[in-house]
Structure formats: structure tokens, C-alpha cells
Design a protein around this nucleic acid. Sequence first.
DNA 1: ACGAGTCAGTTCTGAAATCGAACGTACTTT
DNA 2: AAAGTACGTTCGATTTCAGAACTGACTCGT
Lengths: 162, 162
Amino acid sequence: MKWDELAEQSCSMARTLSVIGDRWTLMVLRDCFLGVRRFDDFQRRLGVTRGILSDRLRQLTEAGVLDKVAYQDRPPRHEYRLTRRGLDLHPVILSIVHWGDVHMAGEAGRPILHRHKTCGALFDPVLSCSECGEPVRPHDVEVIRGPGHAADRHMPPDEAEG
Amino acid sequence: MKWDELAEQSCSMARTLSVIGDRWTLMVLRDCFLGVRRFDDFQRRLGVTRGILSDRLRQLTEAGVLDKVAYQDRPPRHEYRLTRRGLDLHPVILSIVHWGDVHMAGEAGRPILHRHKTCGALFDPVLSCSECGEPVRPHDVEVIRGPGHAADRHMPPDEAEG
DNA sequence: ACGAGTCAGTTCTGAAATCGAACGTACTTT
DNA sequence: AAAGTACGTTCGATTTCAGAACTGACTCGT
């Protein structure tokens, strides 16, 4: 299966991965959330080859996750900014970072900490229910067929949840 | 840069991606959370080649995300189950699926819906602050150097947040 | 005026990963 | 005995990636 075919599956996971399911794409997005906006800055910070970076920035722009904005005319220079769509990826990035903090941190502890400006505290991200506000645990989630469901294979095979 | 080198960076994002930063790995994990446990079931549902699947299941097992458990002896057969470490990836998967629901769903609407068993409602996952319980927005997060920080490049270049 | 530096890419070649399909092994079912 | 199930491995052809050099348009220092 190719990336393009992945996008056509009636599975939100597959469709999202057709946009961000690549290590460099996610590393680029991490840097975007840290405020990086220019080609050479991405390249130096990530150590990715220029060819790959060029390709990934183009893909993200085409997907509407980044916006390519000119900041000078002669010579033409642009910067890449997160769109609304891109900003909505924040939970994905934070969840990934948090898992690394908990399960992959070395002896020395976490490389970075997050402070919630509105309450002032150092915090961990918690995934909670939009309706009752309580934290969501894996076994408390039931997967139900939605209106956009096609007869694919993204439903539980029989019983759910492992 | 190779995958192995990624794991050695003092960045939780990079370290996590060295484990799950691959489209097939994430598709396998999606199916794990839907209750899929056996080789051929993964293969049929995902359409991935058997070689890749074999490799990814081995990697996930080595990383402690899945556990390979025998369910019969003659012939020896195993199933792959999420460990505690693996279950902790639930927020990552849910966040990715939710982004797809919001930004990649077709005309027909979402392919699947989630029900929160403890409150009974259909819900969206919301990332909130472990300290005050409020939803976390991109601009409300400040990144701070932690104890495990090495002089790498995962801090904001100057000012934060885009 | 001249070379050095910045910024945003493109182009090249060899190395590595991936695809699709077939094959192997050890059982169970018909 | 033949077909099916389960879990992989192996193989050659294709695709992607890494590392490095190169282009082009401009700016800055001397």
C-alpha cells in the first residue's frame, strides 16, 4: 500500500498518517511549535537532508498544515507558519512528547518541562472527555460505527479493547 | 540521521519517534487498540507486506510496547498484546484519530465515533492540564529546560510558540 | 569592487528500505 | 489425501533516503 492509497481509506488514523505519518514530518512539526519558521533553521536544528526537508515542507503546505508566507521580496524569501489546521496538531505532538518523557527519559530525567501559563504550574498533558471532563482510559472507550463509515477494516474485529 | 541516532537525542519527541515514528507501526498500534492480536489478522486488515509486519511487531516487542504471548503449544502460536507502556500510547492514537475526524473526514462525516463508557456520551478527546484540569491551548504552553537536558537543539530558538 | 556569508532550495550517486509474491513448516479439518 | 490455518522467511525489482555538492540572488564588510 502506498501513501496515497492510505489517504483514501475510510479510517481517520490512516488519513491523518498520510499527512503526518513520517518521522521527519513530525520532527518538523515539533520545531514549528517551538517557533521555528525558516528553511535553514529547520535544517540546522534537525540535521535532516535539505532534499527531504524541502519535500516535507512542500507536503505539509499542500496539506494545509503549514502556510508559506513571504517575508521579503528581493531575493524572495518565505517562512512556514502553522495554520489553524496545524495548530490543531498540538495534542498529537504533546502526547508523543509526554510518552517519551515517561517511558524514554534517561537517568537524568526529562529534557524539557511544560508550564501552563494560565495556571502557572508545571504540568503533564492528560487526555480527557469533552463531555464529562474526566480523564479517558483505554478500556473506557467504545468504538461505534459513524456516518462516514465504509465497509473497510477499521472496526473492532469482534470484541474491543486490549 | 538514522533511527538509532534519533533515539540518542535528548529530545522526548525524537526518542518516541524512534519507537513509533513509522506509518505501519502506528497502523499496527491502532489495530492493537481495536483488539487485534494475531499476525494474520494484522496482515489482512492492514494490507501491509508480511515482511514489514514481522519486522514492526518485533521492534514493538523489543521496545516493550507489545508482549508476545503463547496461546498454544503445538504448533507454537503467539499473540501480541499491549503492555502498560503500550496502553500509555492511547492518547497519541486518540489524538491522531481525532485530528483526522476533524480535518480529513469526507462529506459523509466521521467513519467512527467514540463513546465514553463511564459517562455514556459520545465524546471528543480533549488535552487538558494535569494541575488545573483546563484544556491546554498551544499558546498557553511554555517550554522550560528540564534536568535531563543536554545541549541539543530542542529548545525554542528565542521566543516560543507559533 | 571583491570575496565571504546568508537563505532557499535543486541535483547527483550510492545505500537502505519497501513491495509483491512465492515458499516453508507445523499442525487441523474435511 | 488434500485443503486450510497460522506465522513467518526469502527473493528480485522498485522506491526512498543520506550525504554532499551546486545554483542563484542577494547583503555585508573592507
